[in-house]
Design a protein around this nucleic acid. Structure first.
Lengths: 253, 253
DNA sequence: CCTGATAAGTGGTCTGTGCCACTTTCTACC
DNA sequence: GGTAGAAAGTGGCACAGACCACTTATCAGG
């Protein structure tokens, strides 16, 4: 195919140059002006501007103009085992179910899932392995009320959220926290690392389309074999599909 | 602030319903069909579809059609201090410079920055505090060759990457890894936590537009006060999203 | 001098249209 | 029967224009 240069890209490149040569906060020419300068239609200009707004390099303000955005860095996160650079792809994951039962939530889990301690939940504990070696210890809790007919096979499935959907549960979002910890006795023997070895504690709380808590996951990952690698790209603004959300504007990242 | 329902949103909602009720991989009606069904123009339909493609809920294939994407979960990461739920907004960061010098890179740092161990670098070590309390210990290294005239003030600046740009260095991307660790003696006393307390080790390697390594950052964050919170949204793929940026009165930055 | 209406400039939305590029399917030819 | 080519259907790009919503500067009136 010939190098049919798209006008949109030509406009985008022009804008990128403006961004490079202008300080943050500086206005760029009005859309209608750009049309004339570059001999393209306004929809074309708008589409190019929109692309750069989406990537966070420009900021539009209704009635005021379009401005060079302050460079921000946000991240896309992927997990990474050991020294492999590609996530998930390298190393084959498997898992061994340690325990599986339908039990009372208890105080701690009940609080996370907004349930009474006596409420029933599906519980599964499993050891997750990479190439046969223990990598993480995962505890999964799903309120029985959310999906009464959930089976072990469902919870074992690689595509758990797809299974949930078949049970009428439409996952919408999740909040996950990560903090450093050290392994205790039982974790130590299951993961095959010394007691008090560094580890990562993941906690994930998943929410329904209706706002119900549908899943609470508590995982311990070996610190010596697992790390998080994030690729930070310049100018990305936090995605927001539905509503606003706080943004990282400060620092460490 | 009237509730003038946008046609684009009406179309989007219609599409979302289709996505909910169709299995992954199923085709959705052609754009021209949707125009007729919803009595809107094709650009309007396309803009709505594009929004959902950007959020990863739909996949377009030239000449074939548009399909419901396989649900994926990716994450947007924000840092979070202590128990506050809003990142950065709560708690005021400050920092105290512990050391600042122009020194030889040394073996370890040199390797990271692709420099000879004898190459000169700007080095700064600082204690980062939140509300006056030690939170992290940060070591920043910038090759002298990259920005010879870099000052302490530049490196201290909250907007370091902006300063770099003024020195002609255009940051393009960074790779950051996070792993659990425990604090050693010196870290212990600086951070005010016991030796061997859990902590997070951040390592960031930042790259130039020309592919040069321009920054290596090594940070230790207290595990008892710092954790990472990520908000995972359904259907996200590498792409970016549409949508309005939250705007505050006056300065949008 | 202050205040409020007005006008000009900006981005935001939507229409209707035309043509191109890619994919699949059907069909006519060999 | 097999194959190449046409046709139909899809998304991709671009145009010109109209109108709306918001912001700012200006200017006349108090």
């Amino acid at each position: 195919m010939a190098e049919a240069i798209l006008k949109r890209e030509r406009v985008r490149d022009h804008l990128l140059e403006l961004i490079e040569t202008h300080p943050a906060g500086a206005p760029i020419p009005a859309e209608r002006v750009l049309c004339q300068q570059l001999s393209v239609s306004r929809p074309t200009v708008r589409s190019a501007v929109e692309e750069l707004v989406n990537t966070g390099l420009l900021v539009r303000q209704h009635g005021r103009g379009t401005f060079v955005a302050r460079a921000k860095i946000t991240q896309e996160m992927v997990s990474d085992t050991g020294s492999m650079s590609l996530p998930q792809a390298s190393g084959t994951w498997s898992s061994r179910v340690l325990e599986h039962a339908r039990i009372a939530a208890g105080a701690r889990v009940g609080r996370r899932l907004h349930l009474s301690p006596a409420a029933e939940i599906h519980y599964i504990a499993r050891l997750r392995l990479v190439d046969g070696e223990p990598m993480a210890l995962e505890h999964l809790h799903v309120p029985a009320a959310v999906a009464p007919a959930l089976t072990l096979h469902d919870m074992e499935s690689g595509d758990f959220y797809e299974r949930l959907r078949e049970h009428g549960v439409h996952v919408s979002e999740a909040v996950q926290s990560i903090e450093p910890t050290v392994v205790n006795d039982s974790e130590s023997s299951l993961l095959g690392v010394p007691v008090l070895a560094p580890a990562l504690l993941f906690e994930r709380l998943t929410t329904d389309a209706e706002g119900r808590q549908v899943e609470y996951v508590h995982s311990i990952y070996r610190g010596d074999r697992y790390r998080i690698v994030s690729r930070l790209t310049l100018g990305a603004s936090p995605r927001n599909t539905v509503d606003v959300q706080a943004r990282v504007s400060g620092d460490p990242f």
